[in-house]
């Protein structure tokens, strides 16, 4: 199981590198689609069918939005040789990578080994959620019942994003 996940994640890394370095913006966006759809396979292997369904829908919508933006433009990324700002951002990147590496090493020791999760929080959910919420699917029970306010906040974020998109697209720019 771990080997399969690792191989698929390796393919995702290759897709991500291609997406970052592609000359044509359309290939870059499609390569981002590779990463998203590989995640669906990972979710299925990790026994999360709800996440797989949501991710496949969301990834398709994201791809459609990005392709719509890219097709509207000249589609090519102009090559420009690195200047001072380029070196500054590369140095910042290296420093950030070391900071994240330190945090990763510190946090990996706290995590359980893959496949030996101890279900500290989820024990009560699994014991009684089906009876308390009346939902056979425990994920739905958690999202819509135990964490209902969380889901309401999510709906507010979605409405705000839709309003923002509509407002920005309708504004008239200054000349």
């Amino acid at each position: 199981m771990e080997l399969a996940i690792s191989v698929i994640t390796g393919l995702m890394i290759l897709g991500a590198l291609y997406a970052i370095h592609a000359k044509d913006l359309l290939s870059s966006v499609i390569a981002c689609g590779i990463v998203g759809y590989s995640l669906v396979i990972c979710f299925l292997l990790l026994k999360a069918p709800d996440l797989a369904i949501v991710q496949i829908v969301v990834d398709t919508i994201t791809l459609i939005i990005m392709v719509a933006v890219v097709l509207d433009s000249s589609r090519e990324e102009k090559y420009s040789k690195p200047d001072t700002m380029g070196y500054v951002s590369a140095a910042t990147g290296i420093i950030l990578i070391f900071i994240f590496l330190w945090f990763f090493i510190a946090s990996i020791q706290q995590l359980d080994v893959l496949g030996k999760s101890t279900l500290r929080m989820a024990g009560p959910y699994i014991e009684g959620a089906a009876y308390k919420t009346g939902s056979a699917n425990l994920v739905t029970g958690v999202v819509f019942d135990f964490r209902g306010y969380d889901t309401m906040g999510e709906a507010v974020v979605l409405v705000t994003a839709v309003l923002g998109v509509l407002t920005i697209l309708r504004l008239k720019g200054k000349k």
């Binding site: 990790l46 026994k47 999360a48 709800d50 996440l51 949501v54 991710q55 969301v58 919508i61 994201t62 939005i65 990005m66 933006v69 509207d72 999760s117 279900l119 929080m121 989820a122 959910y125 699994i126 959620a129 425990l138 994920v139 029970g141 958690v142 999202v143 964490r147 969380d150 889901t151 999510e154 974020v157 979605l158 705000t160 994003a161 839709v162 923002g164 998109v165 920005i168 697209l169 504004l171 720019g173």
Partner: peptide, 29 residues
Amino acid sequence: VDPLPQAMVLTAIVIGLATTAMLMTIIIR
């Protein structure tokens, strides 16, 4: 398998869609 991280990721995926849509709108402007 643990249902709690799955519920959290379910929320995060949808919010990720909202932020990406917002970002692409600003980029097109």
